[in-house]
Write a protein that binds this DNA or RNA. Structure first.
Lengths: 374, 374
DNA sequence: TATTGTGAGAAAAACGATTCGCTGCTTAAT
DNA sequence: ATTAAGCAGCGAATCGTTTTTCTCACAATA
């Protein structure tokens, strides 16, 4: 059949042949029935041998195992799923899979699923509430065994309800504010608090936080940490300010430029995310301000290749890989024991002491772990 | 049923109760049978209405559509796949999904599948030949309708045969050297040739190419482009050299350091990949060489956030998004028409003229499109 | 001896769709 | 008037497993 040439049409001139493209897809796969026939047993026996669901005598088991091996049979996962109701696949929804921070995380989640013999369905919510709703539904339709979601800023609570209704366990990433869910993130408050405290410790009294989108829960938490540090310092004449930016994936450059033109301008600036850090650096450049001489700068998140920046960023580093690992391990635990109590994991990040804060390095930069979890 | 408390065991002391965790997963989904009953038709009719596989009278079609809507029924994809043999899912295998360059590509592929109503199975080959073989098999077992593979350096040809045998169309990414396959990549030769030519044009006569792993096809192509440019220049006393590095994901810093300590050292260096670019920058720093004063530098690939580097990199920029888009569109075409001739797409990249090459900017940097495709 | 139990396997019923073939019934063609 | 064709819809087979139930032979117990 393959490569057979067929007559297409005959014209007046002669006969025209075309080579038929090798037709693939007509491959017959060996099924459990074939195996059963080979081993002279019933299909149920084969199934029991494969799954160990029932005792089978040594003799027949050997025969079956042999038949499986010589025919190198693998059970059809689709058929298996249909009967068992389990797909051995898990879904991962990120708001922007192209972002570097998510790429790292995705890689860890993928590794985890692969190790567990599951497959990973990846979907992107494009940082859009409706899109997120749609992809959640798609993954539910596909009957994934579980889901890991990095929710968009203003995500619809309905998505969680739908998952619950479908009996699909969910692990929430980044946010740790959904009661009753397994979730993993960082301690936004104490991390931001540490950064702020460091600036205060080295003498700054006019600090601005480039906050980002105030509607996002993690941003709100970071602001709380910022305010807490200011309050704890109890320094008179200490002035702190929170600068919001436009919503969405913006670097906030224009907002920061306006801030920098103020008189007097703040002596230190904190950027609340990696993207805002880039915006800040752009703004410094456009205003011809050098860091840390003209202004001190620290950032909440590292940015890629910042080792080549001048100056080096003093920053909190987001433990992305660790978050991915914890997420998939939480999900596996939940799948193994659906009734376990919901767990919230806050993974520790790290502080990197660069030169952008402008201190001589003698003032320590310490991540204080907040003991209160409220 | 939910939250019902059940007696567990009675001891001598009394009766012990535990609260049963709300049992999820016992949700009954509405099936095509329910819809058929609601609309007073047979299941086959419902199916035909959904798929448009047969003419159904307006009256009954309306009844069926109504029933579907009010019960908001969605067909079980697993059951559908089992019967139809198609899963409406496609697989993507990358050698390191965490790398930024792949992240961008994955995002594009995901978008493409989503638009087509398919789901994306993501797997990582960890830049390992055996791992790659394994994940290919896994995806085949899952009966993906098609696959996009960014193969590892020394990938086993068997994986392609297996896909072909299973009737699963494959699009190869990055490499464009597999005859008979749909594939997409860049024109490595002409891109590298352009970079080399630029260095020659501005007067360099001692140029070293930090090549990377010589076993990788794309690297070999870039070397060909390098040599071609040297030859075409026909400048006497022109000296070009190819420096290989250790295999695997290494930045080549140590190799480059050794090179830089030579007397006389090359006057210009080309890095053949983004990772090697980072290694080169590290080496320059450790040897206290400044670019472009002490040595000129251009790189084959951009690296993230290089806008903040000093100096700015003169480089060829890999069109990752475009590659992802082309890959998924090739696959869709193949799925629509399995017999179409195999297509190889070379997408154009771009050159960025920074300051690291050390020219005054008056010498043009032009990407020459090679007309010969051999 | 009659009953009960037990263990190994076979048979059959799901799972939820698609798809082939058949049945009446109406309409067109001979 | 008789046959052929077309239409709308139904019933049943099918995809490849898992899982429940049934059978049958043999051993153990009363």
């Amino acid at each position: 059949m393959l490569g057979e040439s067929i007559r297409l049409r005959s014209s007046g001139i002669g006969v025209r042949y075309i080579e038929r493209f090798p037709v693939k897809g007509a491959v017959v796969m060996t099924t459990i029935v074939d195996v059963a026939r080979m081993a002279n047993v019933s299909v149920s026996t084969v199934s029991h041998v494969m799954n160990g669901t029932k005792k089978v005598s040594d003799g027949t088991r050997l025969r079956v195992e042999n038949a499986i091996r010589t025919s190198n049979f693998t059970p059809h996962p689709v058929a298996r799923s249909l009967r068992s109701g389990r797909t051995k696949s898990i879904g991962l929804i990120a708001s922007d899979t192209g972002q570097y921070i998510f790429g790292q995380m995705i890689a860890e989640v993928e590794r985890g699923t692969r190790r567990a013999g599951q497959t990973l369905l990846l979907a992107n919510s494009d940082e859009d509430r409706e899109q997120e709703k749609k992809v959640v539904q798609t993954l539910l339709d596909h009957r994934v065994d579980g889901m890991i979601i990095a929710p968009v800023a203003d995500s619809d609570p309905e998505i969680f309800e739908r998952c619950a209704a479908a009996g699909c366990p969910v692990v929430v990433i980044d946010r740790t504010s959904e009661p009753g869910f397994d979730q993993v993130g960082i301690d936004n408050r104490s991390a931001m608090s540490s950064l702020t405290k460091h600036l205060i410790d080295i003498g700054h009294t006019d600090i601005a936080l480039i906050a980002g989108d105030l509607g996002v829960w993690t941003i709100q938490e970071r602001i709380v940490g910022f305010r807490q540090a200011l309050q704890d310092a109890a320094v008179p004449s200490l002035h702190g300010e929170v600068i919001p930016t436009e919503r969405g994936l913006v670097d906030g450059q224009s907002e920061i430029e306006i801030l920098l033109q103020r008189e007097p301008r703040p002596t230190a600036i904190i950027a609340s995310s990696g993207l805002l850090t880039l915006g800040a650096l752009r703004a410094f450049r456009s205003q011809n301000l050098s860091v840390p001489e003209d202004i001190a700068f620290v950032s909440f998140d590292g940015v890629m290749n910042s080792e080549f920046f001048e100056p080096k960023l003093t920053c909190f580093i987001h433990p992305v890989e660790r978050i991915g690992q914890e997420a998939i391990s939480l999900l596996q635990r939940r799948l193994a024991d659906p009734q376990a109590p919901a767990e919230t994991v806050q993974v520790p990040g790290a502080l990197f002491h660069g030169t952008s804060c402008g201190c001589d390095g003698t003032v320590p930069l310490i991540l204080e772990v907040s003991s209160s979890s409220d």
